[in-house]
Structure formats: C-alpha cells, structure tokens
C-alpha cells in the first residue's frame, strides 16, 4: 500500500523534462515566451515528429538558438517561421499550412463525411416514401410475394398447424 502511494505520488509530481537548457533562454521573459511559441510550431527535422522545443537533438538545439537570435534581432514570430520555411519547406511547420496543395488533407475528411450524410438522408427519405406508398407497411411488405414464396408460406403454415 505504502509503495503504491509513493509510486503514485512520484508519478504525479514528476515534472515534464524540458529540452530547452537554461543557458539557451533569453533574459527578457516576454521574448523567451515568444521563442517558446515559435519553437513549439517548428518540427525537429532530424527527429521528425517532435517540435524543436521538445527535442534533445543537436540540430534542434541549434535551431532553438537561431530562433532566439532572430527574435533578439527584432524579427516577428512570423518572420522567424518564414525564414525556417524558406530553408526547409512547409515540412518544418508541425501544422501544415492551408493552401492549394493541402486542401485534400484539410477538407478531404469533411467532404467524405458530407457525402456520407447525403447518402444516409437519401436512403431514409426513399424508405419513408416507400412506407407511405405501401400504406403503413415497410418497404419489403409492400412488395407482393412471388408464387414460390406463397407456396412456401402455405407449407410452413400447414406444418405449424399439424
């Protein structure tokens, strides 16, 4: 019990480990906050699915330092991001930009859901119409039985009675 409690306590109080080293940080907290914001949006190009803010890779560290240098030099957040994109392409942004080549990515799923909704609505409207035409029965009931089916039904009824 005690071990469990201690383990739980340790798990809950563990602080997220920062990749950003204290020596890298800017003195001005407002600028440092901006640098963090920019770093979180930039992909570490060697580790692929981490931001440079998370990554311990050397190139990520060098990129963080460059981000801070450019902010110190007076670049806006967008200018820093644009610089990185001009070097590494859109891939360096963790959130893909909305533009011609990424429309399929951003809107494809929405279009498919939309088509699905249209299909479902069409299906139910057809069924409702069939119900109305069949005088209260389901679509299946409104279709008369074939001769074979009539014979089979009669046989079954006979079996049940005997």
């Amino acid at each position: 019990m005690k071990t469990l409690l201690v383990t739980l306590l340790m798990a809950l109080t563990a602080l997220p480990v920062l990749a950003v080293e204290p020596s890298e940080m800017l003195k001005d907290p407002a600028k440092e906050a901006r640098a963090r914001e920019v770093s979180i949006a930039l992909r570490c190009v060697v580790c692929q699915n981490q931001s440079i803010d998370d990554s311990n890779a050397q190139l990520a560290r060098d990129m963080r330092i460059l981000v801070r240098e450019r902010i110190e030099a007076g670049d806006s957040n967008q200018e820093v991001l644009d610089y990185m994109v001009s070097r590494y392409g859109d891939f360096v942004l963790l959130e893909p930009p909305v533009k011609g080549t990424t429309y399929a990515l951003w809107f494809g799923p929405l279009v498919i859901v939309g088509l699905g909704v249209v299909a479902v609505v069409a299906f139910y409207r057809r069924r409702l119409r069939a119900v109305a035409a069949g005088g209260g029965g389901t679509q299946a009931a409104s279709v008369p039985l074939s001769d074979d089916e009539e014979k089979r039904l009669a046989a079954l009824m006979e079996d049940a009675e005997s």
């Binding site: 190009v45 692929q48 590494y88 891939f91 494809g108 088509l115 299909a119």
Partner: peptide, 29 residues
C-alpha cells in the same frame, strides 16, 4: 451511395503515395 467510398479511395490514394515519400529527403528550397 458509392460516393463516400470513392472519396475515401481518392484520399487513400494520397496517403498511399505518402508511404513512398522519404520524410528525410526534404525538397531543395
């Protein structure tokens, strides 16, 4: 009724193409 399936196939085509791309080879900007 097959429209959603068609949409899915088109999107799937894009994703399948994605498997062939090497994420380590970035374009030469």
């Amino acid at each position: 009724y097959f429209l959603p399936l068609v949409g899915l196939l088109i999107l799937g085509g894009f994703f399948l193409k994605g498997f062939e791309l090497n994420p380590r080879e970035l374009p030469n900007m």
